[in-house]
Write a protein that binds this DNA or RNA. Structure first.
Length: 585
DNA sequence: GCCGTTTTCGGCCCGACTGTTTTCAGTCG
């Protein structure tokens, strides 16, 4: 069993133990172990072979046994028995807001409900409100939760969540009572998808701010309305939380609610190890720090920014998008190894992999170049589909060469300050051969090779297929390496570590497909891949002039992945890009 | 179940909000 599947099993175990009413710290040990395994960058097989699994923090002897058994046999008796003892319907019930492990267990033990349907019937019969610990409101909330389950569970693309968040943030900042306001949470961390929106406001008049927030026209339901926190839900199912704090607490609150949860745990542990207790309200000497002279509340520390908070804990400023609990707290130690500076939007000189009316795009060469110029770019890469992508009106060899002539004429006309690089998004056929003739590929400035068919191949077949394409001398870039469509289509099975190694060995660039629905290759893989030498290109995959703007989502991913700017082709000037292509061909 | 330069046992990040209670448990982030 591979690492990802083992991670799933450990997470399953944690959920099942929750429904059993197990010790919460034991549950956390399993979910924590899953997390550690997931973010471990070394090959699991090697780690096990070298006997290093048990020396990883968060994985003790019990987890070593279970992980090794799963890795070797794909089965685990403990897990099988545990799963058999819990009705699958109970796991689904955890998705209903307000129901956690203990309440689901109680509903099951007291009423015998084992499915959402049975729970619904029990609520409608008034059996739930009759239970100790439940009441009328609980019953209603459960019924509402069941009715809206699909919408509540949904995550939202970062790009779309941002368009909802921006006017709310602007509205908050316009209020006279508001001193400072920021969006926090996964939106601020630039995650590819966002569960809900979080807003942090500094104000000494919280009530007025809360009232404005819950009174917005777009609010469909107010789910909480307290003294410092309010929550609302919009029609789309998207939930937004607002927290109002005093200015002195703002940096702490902003840091806390930006998260991630794992980052916060690491920061609190760091604070504790230095004798301080960190919370969303502030930083104070911890009560058990030993020296009796430190009374709780007597040494509250003040910081005016997140940067000061990090510095107090001996850290460089960690950008929000890096706070994923993936070792950043250790890496950003003051005076430690230098960390790469993060890409800025303004550093991009152009973008690659965009479509025109020649295949399935909506803009002409001229229109796309004009839009690129408006964005301040020096160059634009055009890469239409090749003929195997019949549904996208892909180009034959002859049509590619015709377009190449059009691009040359456009560049020579001098009508645009933007230089257009001629490329193609060439299909990688099922056997790993390419959809166009070698001489066609060689005539172009550059190529992007992508998989658009036979998604259901085995991992071994798909990996071999893509590596064969990478090894072709006509290949310059690899397009969207997993084919995933966020929230809609799973990635196809592929061993990306092998693909990354092949790309490095063959000097092939892997793209960050910046379409907000793709963001592929995933940010989680970039830091390690970049350290090994992989080059990156940020490719909006624009199918219209408006689509060029997606490059900003690609910049997010490059930042999250911590890719040094020297390894991002878009940061080079026109001559530098031309040189890279020339050396590669 | 994990962990330890005070600890191999007894802790484990912390606090708001809700609904149900009458002082608090459960959920959530």
């Amino acid at each position: 069993m591979n690492k990802a599947d083992i991670v799933d099993v450990l997470e399953d175990i944690a959920v099942l133990l929750e429904l059993k009413g197990e010790n919460p710290f034991k549950i956390r040990a399993y979910s924590g172990g899953a997390r550690v395994l997931e973010t471990m960058e070394d090959d699991l097989g090697e780690v096990i072979a070298e006997g290093r699994l048990g020396s990883i923090k968060g994985i003790g002897s019990a987890l070593v046994d279970k992980i090794e058994t799963l890795h070797a046999t794909g089965e685990l008796e403990y897990y099988t028995k545990l799963r058999a003892s819990i009705a699958p319907g109970l796991i689904e019930m955890l998705d209903i807001p307000g129901l956690g492990g203990k309440k689901v267990k109680k509903l099951h033990d007291a009423l015998g409900v084992e499915s959402i349907d049975a729970l619904k019937a029990a609520c409608e019969a008034g059996e739930v409100s009759a239970l100790k610990g439940f009441g009328q409101k609980s019953e209603e909330k459960i019924l509402t939760g069941i009715a809206n389950r699909a919408a509540y569970a949904k995550r939202h693309l970062w790009w779309e969540a941002r368009t909802v968040a921006e006017p709310i943030l602007a509205g908050l900042r316009d209020l006279p009572q508001v001193e400072q306001a920021e969006a926090a949470g996964s939106l601020r961390r630039l995650k590819e998808t966002v569960g809900d929106l979080d807003f942090i406001v500094a104000s000494s008049e919280p009530q007025a701010v809360m009232d404005w927030f819950v009174g917005q026209d777009s609010v469909q339901e107010v789910t909480a309305h307290g003294e410092t926190k309010s929550s609302v839900r919009f029609e789309s199912g998207l939930q937004a939380d607002l927290r109002v704090v005093l200015m002195a607490q703002f940096a702490f609150a902003l840091h806390h609610f930006t998260g991630s949860k794992e980052h916060n745990v690491a920061m609190r542990q760091r604070a504790l190890s230095r004798g301080y207790s960190l919370s969303e309200w502030g930083l104070k000497p911890s009560s058990n720090s030993g020296s009796g002279e430190m009374e709780v509340g007597s040494g509250e520390l003040e910081v005016s920014s997140e940067q000061e908070l990090f510095e107090f804990l001996g850290l460089q400023m960690i950008a929000p998008e890096l706070r994923e609990g993936m070792g950043e707290v250790e890496r950003y130690e003051l005076g430690g190894d230098s960390v790469p500076s993060l890409l800025e939007l303004s550093q991009l000189r152009g973008v690659f992999h965009n479509h025109t009316t020649a295949s399935d795009g909506r803009g002409t060469i001229e229109e796309m170049a004009e839009a690129a110029e408006a964005l301040g770019f020096d160059y634009l890469g055009l890469a239409d589909h090749s003929k195997a992508s019949y549904q996208a009106n892909g180009l034959s060899d002859a049509r590619v060469l015709k377009q190449l002539e059009q691009i040359r004429a456009f560049n020579e006309s001098g009508e645009s300050a933007v230089h257009v690089f001629s490329g193609i998004e060439c299909d990688i056929l099922a056997d790993g051969s390419l959809d166009l003739e070698d001489r066609t590929l060689a005539a172009l400035d550059y190529t992007v090779m992508s998989v658009h068919s036979s998604f259901s191949q085995s991992e071994a077949e798909m990996t071999a297929r893509v590596i064969r394409a990478i090894e072709h001398p006509g290949t310059v870039m690899l397009g969207h390496p997993t084919g995933r469509i966020l929230l809609r289509r799973e990635p196809y099975k592929i061993d990306l570590q092998k693909v990354i190694d092949a790309a490095i060995a063959n000097k092939v660039i892997i793209e960050i497909n910046a379409n907000p629905k793709r963001l592929d290759m995933d940010w989680r893989l970039w830091r390690r891949a970049a350290e090994k030498g992989l080059m990156c290109a940020i490719n909006p995959d624009a199918h219209s002039t408006e689509g060029l703007a997606y490059y900003a989502a690609g910049v997010n991913i490059a930042r999250k992945g911590g890719i040094p700017t020297e390894q991002i082709l878009n940061c080079r000037d026109c001559a530098g890009v031309a040189q890279w292509f020339a050396e590669r061909r």
